[in-house]
Design a protein around this nucleic acid. Structure first.
Lengths: 164, 164
DNA sequence: ATAATTAGTTGATACAAACAACTATTTTGT
DNA sequence: ACAAAATAGTTGTTTGTATCAACTAATTAT
């Protein structure tokens, strides 16, 4: 399993040397790393998994499934901030596992709509179930206020970064 | 530049389907992705960089530099949750750029202490400076309370995940 | 009608992860 | 004291995923 921790120490270092009390993304990458580790462990404990997919594959598959409108590869590349060829290869791998299908647009023959198959939804559900159970345990001890603030700060940082 | 977004959608999906109001790591990976993008852009804008290093290299280099005691490769592998061979190869790359040195322990000849060179510290400072400036902008509009809560939630999640 | 743009594809290259097998050294247990 | 176990590091192999550049085919704009 390939796991990059790019973000972990990149973001982890922000502010280590700050003189004043400021926002620290110090442990955020490490947090995701730990959560990912647990998620992976729980996933592997499941014997009856339909299909094993990597986090990248899962992320893309899930992202496709949650879009209200039809999406094409280009949309997913934009959405996920990756090169179109990266998306293409992820789609290839998902199609090989029969989790998505490329369906040609009859009007614009350059486009392939991405459709999640029945099996695709099944696999998503399996992974989502694991994630839900895990998060239930993880959030024990946090108040609703904590959670709300956390989400708000995340949105704030994301928005600020996006305009930079 | 290699950028993995493993965590982004893995964690991004946690809770999308939750029925009740719960902790959502929904956008956390995306947040780090955006922050990383800005960081990279700012880094590339710097003409007078001593040496370009990847985020992984930077993370390891910085982590070594902040340890109070001498560290060996094994320590860094444990600390960063990676296989020792992954660390070894990152150290190789850092040593090639003359940012760290392996120094043999005279007592236990199995061990190599990792020492950050002068150039190593110089490179760290350059990257840290960029990160600091960026975070100053990003945190505008957040209260101290927001920041504290954010950090506390991150610690909570990390701790909970670690014991799972 | 030609030019520019768009969507997708392919090939080349790079980075970094895991795992397994190995060496050399040190520590442990009897 | 010596054999066995543990430890630190190394190397080779495989896998996954990213970028970039060059390309085709189809569509849109001038």
């Amino acid at each position: 399993m390939f796991v990059s921790t790019n973000y972990i120490y990149l973001c982890g270092v922000l502010n280590k040397r700050m003189k004043m009390q400021v926002l620290t993304l110090n442990n955020t990458g490490r947090m995701l790393h730990e959560v990912y580790r647990v998620f992976k462990k729980l996933s592997e404990g499941q014997q009856h998994m339909e299909t094993y997919i990597t986090p990248e594959q899962f992320g893309l598959l899930h992202a496709i499934s949650t879009k209200a409108e039809e999406v094409i590869q280009k949309d997913m590349a934009d959405m996920m901030g990756k090169d179109k060829s990266a998306i293409l290869r992820l789609i290839d791998s998902l199609e090989e596992k029969e989790l998505v299908k490329r369906v040609a647009d009859s009007k614009d023959r350059r486009k392939n709509y991405l459709m999640v198959t029945k099996l695709g939804y099944k696999v998503i559900d399996q992974y989502v179930k694991i994630a839900e159970d895990m998060m239930m345990v993880i959030q024990e001890g946090l108040s609703q206020d904590d959670i709300d603030t956390f989400q708000r700060v995340v949105s704030h940082i994301t928005a600020k970064a996006k305009e930079m």
